[in-house]
């Protein structure tokens, strides 16, 4: 965890959201809302959590800082180090790996000249290896911030990164224009469904 003397505070919008989360639990059990609140705070804080944020959340929920820290270290989706503007989460679990996750990783590393767990010097990209993202049908998969990019190969991966470098938005989902998770050659079942 990175120690800091800066202060953190929810924006007024997030404060309303936070209180909504807390109101979902019985009175006195506000600590149950620690996970959504941490996620909210992480998004507000540029994608990561530091000492000030954890202390703020602990105070907000009247719990000890170590308990918040326990939660934040247990779940991998809370980042305890700064991440780039685009946080690339590369799936490395078996289906993606079988479908060429290694070459996707190579493509990212070549394009951005960073290794796993590193951030580009301009602070734009961070590459993290993660476990299954739950989109195995369209493996290999990469999650960038809140979007999934599926059916990747080296070329399409590099293209996405180029677009992001130019500050434009690449289209998310299958990069092979597959409709959801239907076969690549087009739907084979329920084809008459749309005709009716």
């Amino acid at each position: 965890m990175i120690e800091t003397k800066e202060k953190f505070e929810f924006s007024s919008k997030n404060q309303i959201k936070a209180d909504q989360y807390i109101s979902r639990y019985p009175a006195g059990k506000q600590q149950s809302a620690v996970m959504p609140l941490l996620y909210l705070a992480q998004n507000q804080n540029g994608g990561w959590l530091n000492q000030a944020v954890l202390e703020y959340i602990a105070d907000y929920l009247s719990m000890s800082a170590i308990k918040v820290y326990e939660v934040a270290t247990f779940y991998t989706m809370y980042n305890l180090k700064p991440v780039g503007k685009h946080h690339i989460q590369l799936c490395r679990t078996t289906p993606c790996w079988l479908r060429g996750a290694n070459s996707i990783a190579e493509a990212i590393c070549e394009k951005l000249s960073i290794k796993h767990g590193e951030t580009t010097p301009d602070g734009k990209f961070t590459l993290t290896e993660v476990e299954c993202l739950g989109a195995c049908v369209n493996a290999p998969v990469v999650q960038i911030n809140n979007d999934f990019y599926e059916d990747l190969d080296k070329k399409s991966m590099k293209k996405i990164l180029e677009l992001l470098q130019e500050n434009s938005t690449p289209s998310s989902g299958s990069q092979k224009q597959r409709h959801t998770s239907a076969p690549q050659s087009g739907p084979k079942t329920l084809i008459t469904l749309g005709e009716k």
């Binding site: 965890m1 120690e3 000492q51 954890l54 000890s64 800082a65 170590i66 308990k67 918040v68 820290y69 326990e70 270290t73 247990f74």
Partner: peptide, 19 residues
Amino acid sequence: VEEMGAIYRGEHMEIGTFL
């Protein structure tokens, strides 16, 4: 005094304090 806790998980679990 709630100062000690279990941080990280699984193989990496450690007993420690906040700061």
